[in-house]
Simulated scan of single mutants.
Amino acid sequence: MIVSIRNFFPEDKPLVDQVVRDAWIELATAMPGWNELAPRLGALTANAALSEVLVAELDGEIVGAAGYVGPNQPKPDFFAPEWPMVRLMSVVPKARGHGVGQALLDECIDRAKRDSTTLIALHTTPIMEAAQHLYQRAGFGVVRNLPDMFGVPYVLMTRLF
C-alpha cells in the first residue's frame, strides 16, 4: 500500500469532510461535549484559505487529512503566534496502521522547517491514544495542560527542530 500526501483542492471538500467525521466519530461516546464538537469538524476545509490542508491518499483513495497552520496565521490563543501548528489530523479507521498519520505529520514538520521555524505545535486529548503514541514517537512533548475542551482534558505539545 502506497501513502501519498498532496495539497487539498476545493473539489476534495466533501470527501475530506467525510474523512474527518469518520476519523473522529469513535470519540462520540468518550467526549461529553461531542454535540458541540461535531459541527466543528468541517473547520479543516472551511478554513482552507487560512492554512494549508493536506490530503492523504492510500492507493489513490482519500483516507486522511490534516491542516498545517503556518507562523503568524490565525490560531487559538494558547499557541504563540509565531508557532506553526498541526490542526485536526484525521485518519479513517480502516487506514490506520499503514503510515498515513506518520506521513501527514512528517509533511507538517517539513512545512514548518520550510518556514524556517524552530518548532511545531499541536493540541490533543489523551483519550486519542494512538495519536499520543504517534506524536511521542515523532519527538513531541507535552508543554502544558490546557483547559478541558468538549468535556475532556487537552494538552499542548511541541516538537523542537
Rank of each mutant, 00 (worst) to 15 (best):
M1N: 12
I2Y: 03
I2T: 14
I2W: 04
I5D: 10
I5F: 09
I5C: 13
R6L: 09
N7P: 04
F8D: 04
E11L: 02
E11T: 05
K13G: 01
L15E: 13
V16I: 07
V16N: 07
V16A: 07
D22T: 03
A23L: 08
W24L: 00
E26H: 11
L27Q: 06
L27I: 00
T29I: 03
T29A: 12
A30H: 07
M31V: 01
G33V: 04
N35V: 06
L41M: 14
G42V: 15
A43F: 11
A49D: 15
L50W: 13
V53A: 09
V55M: 09
D59W: 11
E61W: 02
E61V: 15
I62C: 03
A65D: 03
A66F: 09
A66T: 15
G67Y: 02
G67E: 03
Y68R: 08
P71I: 05
N72A: 04
P74K: 08
K75Q: 14
P76L: 11
P76C: 11
D77Y: 00
F79H: 15
A80W: 02
P81V: 01
P81R: 00
P81N: 05
W83M: 09
W83C: 04
V86A: 08
R87I: 00
S90N: 04
K94W: 08
K94L: 01
H98N: 14
V100S: 00
G101V: 08
G101K: 10
Q102F: 04
L104H: 10
D106S: 12
E107Y: 07
C108Q: 12
I109M: 06
D110P: 00
R111S: 06
R114G: 11
R114T: 13
T117N: 08
T118W: 01
A121T: 08
A121Y: 09
A121S: 15
T124A: 14
T124L: 02
T124I: 07
I127W: 00
M128F: 00
L134A: 11
Y135R: 10
R137H: 14
R137M: 06
R137G: 01
G139I: 08
G139F: 02
G139R: 01
G141V: 13
V142E: 13
V143C: 09
R144H: 13
N145C: 11
N145G: 13
D148T: 13
D148L: 07
D148G: 04
F150R: 14
G151A: 00
V152S: 00
P153V: 13
Y154S: 11
L156H: 11
L156T: 13
T158D: 10
T158Q: 08
T158K: 15
R159A: 11
L160K: 15
F161T: 15
